[in-house]
Nucleic acid binder design. Structure first.
Lengths: 111, 111
DNA sequence: GCGTTATGCTACATTAACTGTAGCGTCAAG
DNA sequence: CTTGACGCTACAGTTAATGTAGCATAACGC
């Protein structure tokens, strides 16, 4: 099932959902933004601070793209996950767990 | 536990594993490469073809970075996951499943 | 030995993406 | 009627990715 209207996503001319998704997640700051929103919504400015002063231009671009894809939306509490996006957001926790295990292994090798 | 020797990762000066990881995964082509390697190793050239003619410069950069982080390695069958990296690679399947559900929802909205 | 093919790259000029600083417009509170 | 928060936009400068070309090494067939 091809994704309509977002087929222009960089490098994903097939419109296959996984390609559109990988393309979006692979853009600079996308994952970091999703990480910072894992627990609760944040305002534009708070997100900017949490991300270590990402430029507003890029932040705005990513937020627009993520809203277009209905992964995030902009409600009363600021920017946060949609119901559907939240399921993707939970993956952030899994990445966190894996990364800690990974770091432990790398540390061993370097000892 | 900070990750040693890879603290220079873009935008992750803290060395926190999750930041190093998000930084790496957020680079263009990283996720696509991991996707294409999900089932079996591929040679440099096959990977290039699978990725729709990614430039060799970028492919080489990513592969070097992923080897440095011990997520991939280069063995007899070409480039493939390390034992540790493979656990991360399984997440690709989860992303695929989610993306299909997501596409179905987007299609509904657009109907 | 000698051409052929596959592989893993490197060089380099061009183009696209991101950055950093400044500041604007809107709104609500005091 | 000013002050502060918020959500941006403009724009010049820097960094990263692209695309084409081609090199070096090694194995294979003859």
């Amino acid at each position: 099932m091809p994704v309509k209207n977002i087929d222009k996503a960089r490098g994903s001319d097939t419109g296959r959902p996984i390609m559109v998704l990988l393309d979006m997640l692979g853009k600079r700051w996308t994952l970091r933004i999703m990480w910072e929103l894992r627990d609760h919504p944040l305002t534009f400015r708070d997100l900017q601070k949490q991300c270590g002063d990402i430029s507003p231009t890029t932040l705005n671009n990513r937020l627009r793209e993520l809203r277009d894809l209905q992964i995030l939306d902009h409600g009363s509490g600021g920017y946060g996950y949609t119901a559907l996006g939240a399921e993707l957001g939970t993956q952030m926790t899994i990445l966190d767990i894996w990364s800690n295990k990974w770091a432990k292994n790398l540390a061993k090798d370097q000892a």
